[in-house]
Design a binder for these strands. Structure first.
Lengths: 165, 165
DNA sequence: ATTTCTTTGGCATTATATGCCTCATAAAGT
DNA sequence: ACTTTATGAGGCATATAATGCCAAAGAAAT
């Protein structure tokens, strides 16, 4: 359950429909959304704005094609730290955030590693370079294990909204 | 390098700027984009349309807030298959694509597993349910290892465009 | 049943997108 | 060197969409 706060909103079926439509297609016009959810444009836009204000709608983005941009290699990197101090973590996270190649970086449990990264680069040469000159040089990084994506079966930014009340 | 085809496009500095702007903010109007890249609206829109037609711009989406929607648990699942036959893979991939909880599914190397999944659910109970009733019941799934995201350091859909010529 | 509060729908205004036409610039051929 | 051709830019007119305001309808509470 989300935390209660003044920005809390009750999300009814209509809001849920709006979110489902928009998270799948961000270029729908307000009129189209209104149509599909059975409202007139005016109240529909008000709901969208309210969802934005509440922070439920975070941002709109444009997704690009990896391969057509020459970014053919996606790597999953598991990284272990030598010492588990706040300073180590802070340094690592700040450094990693500087590299646009890093699409995801999670602190995780359940592995013999602390961080899991998803990195996108053109090819193996570039990956090798990135790993050796950037990742392994960050203070505290002690173990690195690389996996490579052979096939992208699912790659979505959509959240499952079925759990909403 | 991307494959050559009739849909190939030479991406110059202006195109790159457009892509960088749009992949970070999909709700920029054409006029705003034109302004920022130093073009008039007309040629700017033509470039955007060309990038869409070439498949470089794939789609626009809206990103939602996990926590505010009550989706507090993100799991990374490593899955091994009993036999590495095309049928096994096809079955698994088709099944997994049915579940909206699965945000990512990659066939990978370098692990003692075949697939890596990213799954989003409200809590541990729901995760347990999902794993036992859906994932482990798919034919061919032999080994499952779960990790959980403690902290989302970076979670972006933006690609690194610095490698473009 | 009446009052109050919330949400809706319609309308007018403003802003944006889109298609067409003209002009400039660069490359190719004579 | 000059002309020809093609590619892309800019500006304008029109169509489409967003936005704010106000009145009306519906739901909840007393």
């Amino acid at each position: 359950m989300p935390k209660k706060s003044q920005s809390m909103i009750k999300i009814d079926r209509i809001d849920r429909s709006i979110l489902e439509l928009l998270q799948d297609n961000g270029e729908l016009t307000n009129q189209e959304v209104a149509d599909k959810v059975g409202l007139s444009p005016s109240p529909c836009l008000r709901r969208v704005r309210a969802l934005e204000k509440a922070g439920i709608i975070v941002k709109r983005v444009t997704l690009l094609d990896h391969k057509k941009l020459g970014l053919a290699l996606t790597a999953i990197i598991l990284i272990g730290m030598d010492r588990h101090t706040p300073e180590r973590f802070a340094t690592f996270e700040a450094k990693v955030a500087e590299y646009p190649e890093v699409q995801e970086c999670y602190l995780i449990t359940g592995q013999d590693a602390d961080y899991m990264l998803k990195v996108v680069v053109p090819d193996m040469d570039q990956y090798h370079h990135f790993l050796l000159n950037h990742i392994t040089r960050i203070q505290g990084v002690s173990g690195v294990h690389s996996s490579f994506v052979l096939r992208r079966v699912i790659d979505s930014s959509a959240l499952p909204l079925r759990y909403l009340s």
